[in-house]
Design a protein around this nucleic acid. Structure first.
Lengths: 243, 243
DNA sequence: AACCCGGGCGACCATCGGACGCTGGTGCC
DNA sequence: GGCACCAGCGTCCGATGGTCGCCCGGGTT
C-alpha cells in the first residue's frame, strides 16, 4: 500500500521531466489570484527533475519499456494513406484564431464536442443493434470517428487534454482567465495544460473532494473518464489538507 | 453486419448443444400459462444440434479454442490449498432446503446479495484511496470476495445465473412459480436456467424492449452487467415482433 | 464398484482504458 | 538551411468483461 503510494508519486512526478527553467520561473500569481493557491509545486506536479535519488534498488517494473518502432514506411506508397500529423496547439484566448501552422484552444474544445456527437451516433447504432450501449467515449467511439471522416480525432490526443476541457466546462471564467494569462506570458501548451489541474483540484475541494461527482453532474463532462492524474492530485491534496 | 448477426446466432445456438431428447420433450406449457409464450425454440435458444451445415468454408476465428490444461496437481501438496468444488445447485422452491450434497436456489440468490455487500466494501476502499470507484460487480469485487473469505464466490458462477437472479428481483411471483414448476417436473438446473430467459424477454417487451433500463431501475440489479445472451434475445424478439 | 450425467469454475481471449516517449513538424536565427 | 524545441499520436501494456468446455463430483444401478 505504501509501495503503491510511491508508484503513484513516481508517475505524477514523471511529468516534471519537462524542462523547468528556474531563471524565468513564473511567480505564484500564475495560479490566479486566489489566496488558496499553494506554492507551485506543493502537490508534486512539478519538481522531481529526475528519479528521486533515495532508492535505486527500486527498479521494480516501472522501468522496462520496450523500444517502440514506428514503421512510417517513408519508402514509397507501402499501403494506403499516411495521415500527416495535425498542427500543434498553442495557447489562445477565447475567440482568437491561431497564427501560423497551429491550432487554437477553441478548436481543441470543439473536438470534445465532436466526440460527444460521435458518441451519440454510436449509442444510436448500438441501440438499433440491441448491443451494449456506451455511456462514455470509448475506443469504439474513436474508431467510429476515424471511420466516419474525423481522422484528426484520436484517443491519446483527447485524453491528454480532458482536464483542460473539464475546467472549460466547469468554470469557463477561470478557464478563460488562465488561457489569457498563459497566452500573454508566452507559455507553451504543456505549461498551460499542467496549470489546468490546480483550479480543478480547488473546485473538487469545494465539492467535498468528489471529482467524479463534479464530472457526472455536468452534461458535457459526464461522457469523459476522469483522468487518473487529476483524481490522484485531488486525493493527495485531501490528505495534505487533513482529510 | 450480416456476418455479425450470424456469429450471434451461432453463439446463442451453441447452448442448444445440451442434449435435446425429443422423446420426452416437455409440452409448451412449460413456459407458463401465458398465451404469449411462443413455442419452445422460436427465439433460437435451443435447436441447432450442431454447426449449421450451410457454410463449412466459414472456419473463421470461432473454431480454434486451445486445449485447456488443468494442473490440478493431485501429486501431493504442491503449493497451498486446493479448494474443493462447490456442490451443484438443484431447483428448489422458495424456503426449501436442498437435499443431499446440493445447494438450493435461495442460497444461489443469497450469493448475489453477498456480492452486493462486497461491492460496497470495494467502493468504500476505493473512495478512501482516491481511486476509481466501481458501480458494478467487477473482477476487483470477485478478487476482494475471494481474499476476504468468500472463496465459494467466483465470476463464471455468478455470471451463469445473473438472469435468474434478475427474474427473482423483477418478478418474484413469476420466479417462484417457475421454480415450483421446474422442481415438480424434476428438471435439472440447466433447464430451469434456460427457462428464466423467457419471462425476462416478456418483461423487457413491456418496458419498450429496454432491458438495460429494467436492470438500472432495480436497486439490486443495477450492479450487475446485463448478460449479452439476454440482451440479444430481447433484440431478436423485438425484430421478430415487428419492431 | 462402475458408469454416466451435468454443471462448477479454471483458464482463455478480444478488447478495453490508460500511458509514454519517438518522431518529425515548426519557428527562429 | 540548420537546429532545437516540443507535442501529436503510434504503439504498447496490464487488466477487464465475457466465455466455454474440461474435469470430476454425485446419484443411480
Amino acid at each position: 500500500d505504501e509501495e503503491m503510494e510511491q508508484q503513484r508519486l513516481d508517475m505524477l512526478a514523471r511529468n516534471g521531466d519537462r524542462k523547468m527553467n528556474s531563471a524565468d520561473e513564473p511567480p505564484e500569481s500564475l495560479l490566479l489570484k486566489d489566496g488558496l493557491g499553494p506554492p507551485r509545486d506543493s502537490i508534486g506536479l512539478l519538481g522531481f527533475t529526475n528519479h528521486p535519488g533515495g532508492s535505486d534498488s527500486e527498479d521494480k517494473k516501472v522501468v522496462a519499456r520496450k523500444k517502440q518502432k514506428k514503421r512510417h514506411s517513408k519508402e514509397f506508397g507501402e499501403d494506403g494513406e499516411e495521415r500527416p500529423r495535425e498542427h500543434p496547439f498553442i495557447v489562445t484566448e477565447p475567440g482568437e484564431p491561431a497564427k501560423g501552422k497551429k491550432n487554437g484552444l477553441d478548436y481543441l474544445f470543439d473536438l470534445y464536442e465532436q466526440c460527444g456527437k460521435f458518441l451519440e451516433e454510436v449509442q444510436q447504432i448500438a441501440k438499433e443493434k440491441g448491443e451494449k450501449c456506451p455511456t462514455k467515449v470509448t475506443n469504439e467511439v474513436f474508431r467510429h470517428a476515424k471511420l466516419t471522416g474525423a481522422g484528426y480525432i484520436n484517443k491519446p490526443k483527447m485524453r491528454d487534454y480532458v482536464h483542460c476541457y473539464a475546467l472549460h466546462c466547469l468554470d469557463m471564467e477561470q478557464s478563460n482567465a488562465l488561457r489569457k494569462v498563459y497566452k500573454e506570458r508566452g507559455e507553451n501548451v504543456g505549461q498551460w495544460c499542467q496549470a489546468c489541474y490546480y483550479p480543478l483540484v480547488l473546485l473538487a475541494r469545494g465539492n467535498g473532494w468528489d471529482i467524479d461527482d463534479l464530472f457526472n453532474r455536468n452534461e458535457k463532462l459526464r461522457i469523459w473518464y476522469v483522468p487518473a492524474k487529476l483524481r490522484h492530485l485531488c486525493h493527495m491534496e485531501r490528505i495534505k489538507h487533513g482529510e
